[in-house]
C-alpha cells in the first residue's frame, strides 16, 4: 500500500517534471529559432536568402562576415560602442545607487518630493523633446562629442535604476547597518561595504538593461554625433539597409556580430542575478 502510494507520488512528480520541461523547452525553442535563422541567413547569398529557407546552408559563405566587418567599419564602431556602453553603465550604476541609498536609508527635507520627481522622468518620456535636447546640447557645446552622447543616456537610465535599487536597499536589516557603524563605517562606508554587495542582483539587472539599451541605441547617436569616427556600432549596420536595397546576408552577419557581445554581458551578469543574496546574508 505504502509502496503503491510512493509509486503514485513518484509518477505524479515525474509527470509534473515532464510537463514543466515541456513548457520550458517549447518556449526555449521559439527563443532560439530566430537566432539560428539569423545565423544561417548570414551564410547565404542575396538570391538564396529568401528562396532557400533551409537552416543548414549547403555552401556557407563565411566571407560574408569578413565583408560585413570591413564594409561596416566595425573596427572603429566597436571601440566606440564599448566605450559608450561601459561609461553609461558605470555612470548609471554609480549615480543611481548613491541616490537610491539616500532615498532608502538617509533622511533629508524634500525626500519624497525628489523621489517622485525622479519617478516621473521615467514615466513621461517625451518624443518631441529630441530637438529641445539638441538645442540644449549645442548651447553646452556638447554636440558631436562623446560626453554629449553619454550624459543624456545616463540620465535616461537613472529613474528605473533608482527605483529598483531603492527597493533592494530598503530590505537591508538595520542591525547589519548598526554593526558596520560600530566597526567605524561612515555613511559612505555603509553604502559601499554593506548596501552595494547586497544589491548585486539589482545591479546585475541594471547592467543588463542599460548595456542593451546603449548597445542598440542609434537614434540619439544620429542626432548628436556628426562624425563617423564617433559613431556607435548600429551605424555600421545602416550601410547594409539602403532606402531600397537591403543586403540581407551581410546585414544578418553584421547583426550576428553585434549580438555576440551583448549575449556575453548577459552571460556574465546572470550569475549574479541568481547567487546574489543568499539567505544567510540577509538574516545577518
Amino acid at each position: 500500500m505504502i509502496k503503491f502510494k510512493m509509486n503514485r507520488y513518484v509518477t505524479h512528480k515525474r509527470l509534473k517534471g515532464f510537463l514543466m520541461h515541456l513548457v520550458l523547452v517549447s518556449v526555449a525553442v521559439t527563443c532560439i529559432f530566430p537566432l539560428v535563422w539569423m545565423f544561417s541567413s548570414s551564410l547565404k547569398t542575396q538570391d538564396t536568402v529568401f528562396s532557400d529557407m533551409s537552416i543548414f546552408v549547403n555552401n556557407p559563405k563565411w566571407g560574408n562576415y569578413c565583408e560585413a566587418w570591413t564594409k561596416g567599419r566595425f573596427g572603429t564602431y566597436f571601440f566606440n560602442s564599448i566605450l559608450y556602453t561601459t561609461s553609461v553603465v558605470a555612470g548609471v550604476v554609480f549615480f543611481a545607487s548613491l541616490a537610491a541609498f539616500a532615498f532608502a536609508r538617509l533622511n533629508f527635507p524634500g525626500k519624497n518630493l525628489l523621489f517622485y520627481m525622479f519617478l516621473i522622468t521615467m514615466m513621461i518620456p517625451i518624443p518631441g523633446s529630441f530637438i529641445a535636447l539638441y538645442v540644449l546640447l549645442s548651447k553646452l557645446n556638447l554636440i558631436n562629442t562623446r560626453l554629449g552622447y553619454i550624459l543624456p543616456q545616463i540620465n535616461a537610465g537613472l529613474a528605473l535604476a533608482i527605483y529598483l535599487l531603492k527597493t533592494f536597499f530598503e530590505e537591508i536589516p538595520k542591525d547589519l547597518e548598526d554593526s558596520a557603524k560600530i566597526d567605524g563605517c561612515g555613511k559612505f562606508g555603509v553604502y559601499w561595504h554593506i548596501a552595494m554587495p547586497l544589491a548585486k542582483p539589482a545591479i546585475a539587472v541594471i547592467v543588463v538593461f542599460n548595456a542593451m539599451a546603449v548597445w542598440n541605441e542609434y537614434l540619439l547617436a544620429m542626432l548628436i554625433l556628426s562624425s563617423k569616427s564617433l559613431m556607435p556600432l548600429q551605424r555600421g549596420l545602416m550601410v547594409f539597409q539602403g532606402a531600397h536595397i537591403t543586403r540581407y546576408p551581410l546585414l544578418m552577419a553584421g547583426i550576428t556580430i553585434t549580438v555576440i557581445p551583448i549575449v556575453i554581458v548577459y552571460l556574465l551578469m546572470q550569475r549574479h542575478i541568481i547567487t546574489g543574496i543568499t539567505a544567510g546574508a540577509v538574516k545577518g
Binding site: L83, T86, S87, A90, N144, R146, S227, L230
Partner: peptide
C-alpha cells in the same frame, strides 16, 4: 577600470574628419 576608460574616452573626443 571603467572610470579610467571613461576619462580616456572623453579626452580623445571630437570629430576630426569634419
Amino acid at each position: 577600470v571603467t572610470f579610467s576608460f571613461l576619462t580616456l574616452g572623453l579626452l580623445g573626443c571630437g570629430g576630426d574628419i569634419e
